[in-house]
Computed example of a mutant assay.
Amino acid sequence: MGRAIADAAKDEGDLAVVDSGGDVLIDFSSPEGLRASISRALDAGQALLVGTTGLDEGHESMMREAAGDIPLLYAPNTSVGVALLSDLVERAARVLGREDWDIEIVEAHHKHKADAPSGTALHLGLAAERGRDEDALDDMGRCGKDLRREVGSIGYSAVRGGTVAGDHDVMFLGPEERLILSHRAESRAIFARGAIAAARFLASQKPGLYSMKDVIG
């Protein structure tokens, strides 16, 4: 991602990627590296864009605390298309009732991805929960017997292999019809372009916690 962002920045013409300083610190490292990135941004008074996935509640708590002092944007996926998909999922979940419509999220990534389900899949699940204004039971894959789904639950399935940049399908399964909202990432360049758009947005913001939804308006 670092190389992809540097290449995308060259195409912009008015941006520069530097090892230190700058207006926005961009972190696509690892959950273990987040604390150091937050400390660096706080010390320098920089805005911070976090694109790392696999974070837990402890990491999210650190980000919320840091957002009191600096602008911080957390995006499990920086694609503008995924940001729009999240909005569509929230709207669909609001319209399609939990009693008649089941939600399943299927994602596919390259064979080297370490976490599952993807941060994007979990992000889309949260969008569905916001649409239904409730916390849902997360069904993380199925194996065995007597696995009848619970009403209102959200199922997650992960596929790993090859060089897949990222595929996500959010399926609303209703009586005699299905609505499937999908996104296909064909190159990591889309994440780099989205990260640059997010950084441009973040550079002019006041301290606070932001998301890609703020970027696309």
Rank of each mutant, 00 (worst) to 15 (best):
S37L: 02
A41H: 00
L179A: 04
A199V: 06
G217T: 09
V106D: 11
V80K: 04
L147C: 08
A128H: 06
A192M: 10
S29H: 01
R149E: 09
D102P: 00
D43R: 12
D133I: 05
S153W: 08
V17R: 02
S204P: 04
D87N: 05
N77T: 00
R149K: 13
Y156W: 05
V159D: 06
L42P: 03
A198M: 08
E186T: 05
F201T: 11
S20L: 12
D146E: 13
A195L: 08
P76S: 01
H112I: 11
A197R: 15
V106Y: 11
G13R: 09
R178Y: 08
E99Y: 14
T120F: 11
G152H: 11
F28N: 07
I103H: 09
V159G: 07
Y74S: 15
I216G: 08
A66H: 02
R193I: 13
G131S: 04
R64H: 06
A195V: 08
V89K: 04
A189H: 05
L55D: 07
T78K: 01
A16D: 09
L137A: 03
L85F: 00
W101I: 13
L49P: 09
H110Y: 10
G208T: 07
R3S: 06
K206S: 13
A16F: 04
I190Y: 00
G97Y: 01
A197I: 10
L179E: 01
F201Y: 14
E57M: 12
G131C: 06
S29C: 10
L85K: 01
I216A: 00
C143Q: 14
L96R: 06
R132H: 04
L181K: 00
P71E: 02
H109K: 10
E176N: 11
D102E: 12
S30N: 03
S86G: 15
P175W: 03
L126W: 09
E32G: 04
H59V: 11
G22S: 13
